[in-house]
Simulated assay, not measured.
Amino acid sequence: MLIKFSVLWVEDDDRWFTASRRILKKYLDDLGFFLDVTRISDPENTSWDQHFEATSQYDLMLVDWRIEQTNKVDKPVGGDVIKRIREEVPYSDILFYSGSDGLEEEVYEKNLQGVYTTKRNQTIDEAKELINHLLHKSLHPKIMRGMIVSSLSQIDDMCFKIIEHKYNDAKCNRKAFAEGFRSSISSQAASQFKAKTKAIKKGDDDFIASLHNTMILDSHKRAIKLIELLEGDLETAKHEKLKSLPDTIIKRNWLAHWKRSEETDTKITLIHSGKSDYIFDQNEATRMRKKINEAGEILNQYLLEVS
């Protein structure tokens, strides 16, 4: 449900890792991505190999070339792990860093191809550049449009799970609960029926052309009801944030169903009869990613707490 950027991070220094992750998280938050980090703090740990069973899930790997441990001398790990990484993900992006000199020479001597190297104090800046490079194609409006539609479909599923949970709660007045939804659906159906009846009477060409505008899309209504149901269950600040979900779903529906009048590398222009054009560009995509991640985190946390 979250639009993630996944990182596998090999680092044993807790303080440096925590500070660096915070900076990288803020950077990706501003781009509308959720930073999902899997950390390895000790490559000699028995769980070391488990982290490489599904390395295709990672967008980037950050690896400290040397892992320092209190009970052993400075141990080089870069050469030890690179072969295993390459076996699993031959073309993944990997950034090795080190606080000592000689890293580039070691990489060259070990004939390690397709990896990046940097000084420890420059790791985050280098990681940001790599992230920008990796996201370049993903940020194309055409690809991002599909990502947003897919992510909100997962949020739709979460909304339904929460509605089911509220209905099955022992304190729920099930009859009143169901009638509340029946009332909303009845009102929506009456309005849609009128529009559909009008569409049916159109000439054949106009009727066929209007079919994509007369689908029943109730995810918007579902989100509105969900916000009503969660009032009192969520902290006020979280509930206020969740109130933007219906608007985000409306924009998703536009992306999924409105006709495209123009599509370039920087924006998609959507048109709908009787409405203003909707411009989906980098700024709008970033705004929507932030809203989706915001809602996804709130709903996911709620489901975890009540499950």
Rank of each mutant, 00 (worst) to 15 (best):
residue 94 I to E: 05
residue 80 D to T: 13
residue 167 Y to H: 14
residue 263 E to S: 11
residue 287 R to K: 15
residue 74 D to P: 01
residue 269 T to N: 00
residue 272 H to T: 08
residue 27 Y to K: 04
residue 177 F to P: 04
residue 235 E to R: 11
residue 159 C to E: 09
residue 273 S to G: 06
residue 186 S to C: 03
residue 148 I to V: 11
residue 60 L to N: 10
residue 121 N to K: 14
residue 176 A to C: 05
residue 281 D to E: 11
residue 242 L to V: 02
residue 247 D to E: 10
residue 250 I to N: 12
residue 206 D to C: 00
residue 240 E to M: 03
residue 111 N to A: 10
residue 204 D to S: 04
residue 13 D to K: 06
residue 23 I to F: 13
residue 293 N to W: 02
residue 82 I to L: 06
residue 16 W to V: 13
residue 150 S to L: 12
residue 165 H to Y: 15
residue 132 N to G: 15
residue 119 K to R: 14
residue 48 W to M: 03
residue 195 A to W: 00
residue 135 L to V: 04
residue 26 K to S: 13
residue 24 L to E: 04
residue 95 L to D: 13
residue 207 F to Y: 05
residue 228 E to V: 06
residue 225 K to R: 15
residue 142 K to Q: 09
residue 199 A to H: 01
residue 86 R to P: 04
residue 66 R to S: 10
residue 295 A to T: 02
residue 151 S to F: 02
residue 75 K to W: 02
residue 25 K to H: 08
residue 236 T to G: 01
residue 72 K to C: 02
residue 78 G to L: 09
residue 179 E to Y: 13
residue 58 Y to H: 10
residue 179 E to Q: 15
residue 109 E to L: 03
residue 30 D to M: 03
residue 115 V to D: 01
residue 130 L to F: 08
residue 247 D to K: 11
residue 36 D to Y: 10
residue 189 A to L: 08
residue 162 I to N: 08
residue 177 F to I: 13
residue 71 N to E: 01
residue 83 K to V: 05
residue 275 K to W: 06
residue 66 R to H: 09
residue 225 K to E: 15
residue 104 E to F: 06
residue 241 K to D: 12
residue 4 K to H: 07
residue 50 Q to I: 05
residue 129 E to M: 10
residue 143 I to N: 14
residue 46 T to L: 00
residue 159 C to L: 06
